[in-house]
Amino acid sequence: MEKEKNHSRPVEESDVKDNSRRDFLKKSALMTAVALTPVAAARAAEMHMDERLAQVFEKMPLHLEINGVAHNLMVEPRSTLLDILREQLDLTGTKKGCDMGQCGACTVHVDGHRVNSCLTLGIMVNGKKVTTIEGLAKGDQLHPMQEAFLKHDGFQCGYCTPGQIMSAVACVREGHANSEHEIREYMSGNICRCGAYPNIVNAIQEVKEGGMAI
């Protein structure tokens, strides 16, 4: 089970655009048949014609910058930013806890603001800058919030942690970390089932009181 560098499925726009559009145009006569007879449909499926159709009609270009790296992708409009990050770009630091905007595990920054990436379709962030947990540290030097989480043990299993940290950084930047009460209120969108809440508050307070630019 070796991990591959490149995914088997084409995701970069340049990989698919020219070929499939041309292919599609060539075979458009067959496409008409596809719609008409089940036998042709089955054959077309065997030839992966449905794939090609999908490539052309169901995918859209998406240009975005993730952790400072530009990506030009072809994505289905229904693909969430979360699934694009995790399944297409192997950025699995961003977690899926509910896939419906109820837990905060998928929190990332889009143009500096925290969002639930499971509630954000990829195409909604076209042209924007996305920061994920993988983009927070500067090389080996952890972000102060990551350091504070380590010091205060702001986690146990670690699954909610990337979302908590992304949310915590935004919470301080937004100016919503002025008291324990305020932190609790503004961090309530990030569930931690292991129950690291008090430690998370302590970590955020330390970063806030440290006054570092974050």
């Binding site: 070796e2 591959e4 995790r86 699995t92 977690k95 010091k151 986690f155 670690g158």
Partner: peptide, 24 residues
């Protein structure tokens, strides 16, 4: 002692069961 795997967890490098990619 801070968690020995804490650094992996706060940087998003800790891999959970759904996070292994295999070809095909």
């Amino acid at each position: 002692l801070s968690r020995v795997d804490g650094r992996l967890k706060v940087t998003g490098k800790a891999k959970y069961s759904a996070e292994y990619y295999t070809k095909g």
